Amino acid sequence: MQDFVYQSAPMRVVFGTGTLRQLPDELSRLGITRVLVLATPRQKDLVAGIREMIGERFAGVFTGAVMHTPVEVTERAMEAMHDVRADCLVAIGGGSTTGLGKAIALRTDLPQIVLPTSYAGSEMTPVVGQTSGGIKTTQSSPKILPQIVIYDVDLTMTMPAGLSATSGINAIAHAVEALYARDRNPVISLMAQEGIGTLARALPIICAQPNDRAARTDALYGAWLCGICLGAVGMALHHKLCHTLGGSFNLPHAETHTVVLPHALAYNAPAAPEAMARIADALGVPDPALGLYDLARKLAAPAALREIGMPEAGIDQAANLAVKNPYWNPRPIERDAIRELIARAWRGEAPQTAPTIS
């Protein structure tokens, strides 16, 4: 067995059905008196329910969360936080609201409670990605980690099938890269394989029967495992590409991950045969890159970057940015090969795996 270091995230997780009702008790546990709720306009009904639930501890709401955590949005949210004298952030939603809460916590060290409504997994990580001037950069700090995460299956039941598919594959991407991360360890590898397999089995059921509570529960459990992987070990080429593409062309986050993942996996396959074997086993397929590509097609998810708004003229720009300050990766980052990867993803072609490196 390899030598390894494993550090568990110091947060409290409440998982189940109807667990949102425990929010008042969790606020009391932290000694909170003035809550700023972070959300998007679509979640006004949930915000109203939270306001009624926590009573006088509700200090205000900011509904301006958007993708990729633009710095200017964070600055507006900070003004709202100061105006209401908040001593806690409650973020309800997917990666956009969670990211906004983390960006505020990075600047203020305010405690956070996250109520996920998607499978994004950001709530499990000490990392925040922020966009300024069309460039997305990441930052890591223990201050970014939420103190409490409440997973309530009920909050995911109305997630549309299409969003469930892309959000779920986004979660799978966290676990895929954890299996070949430089600082991988046996504990996280077990969680990664379980998370991939659980989501791959649950997502087709959800897309066919969105109200299937058992599948929704499995998917949220799998997403939690994949989120732990994202927060525990480093990421590689796939996440670098998605940060580059999302920040540069304002592409939708989960859809970008869905399109790019099979291609990034095919690129790294020759240099990570053990990880590929575990992913293939979790998916129940011989070729993991093709297996993920086929899974996305089965879920009617986007197949091409051009489908989600990337211009063809941006392929070279993306390739240049991807090789600039690259993340660690098991296979060396080669500009021409990365350009071809992005071009295939732009066209929506099947991934192309190179021969195994001897």
Score class of each variant (00 low, 15 high):
K102M: 15
A103R: 07
A103I: 10
A103F: 03
A103L: 04
I104S: 11
I104T: 14
A105G: 05
R107E: 09
R107V: 11
L110I: 14
P111K: 11
P111S: 08
Q112L: 14
Q112G: 09
L115G: 12
L115A: 13
P116S: 11
P116V: 15
T117G: 12
T117S: 14
S118D: 03
S118E: 06
A120T: 11
M124D: 06
T125G: 14
P126H: 05
P126I: 02
P126A: 11
V128N: 00
T131A: 09
T131R: 14
G133K: 12
G133N: 11
G134F: 10
I135C: 15
I135F: 15
K136S: 10
T138Q: 09
Q139R: 15
S141Y: 01
S141N: 03
S141H: 04
S141E: 08
K143P: 04
K143N: 04
I144C: 00
I144F: 01
L145R: 08
P146Q: 13
Q147T: 14
Q147I: 10
I148Y: 04
I150Y: 08
I150C: 13
Y151T: 06
Y151H: 09
D152T: 12
D152Q: 15
L155R: 00
T158G: 06
T158K: 08
P160W: 02
G162S: 15
L163S: 10
L163C: 01
L163Q: 14
S164Q: 13
A165I: 05
T166C: 06
S167M: 03
S167Q: 04
G168V: 01
G168E: 00
G168P: 00
I169W: 02
I169A: 08
N170D: 14
N170P: 07
I172C: 01
I172L: 09
A173F: 02
H174T: 08
E177I: 01
E177Y: 03
A178Q: 07
L179A: 12
R182N: 11
D183Q: 05
N185I: 11
N185G: 13
N185K: 04
N185L: 09
P186S: 08
P186R: 07
V187Q: 08
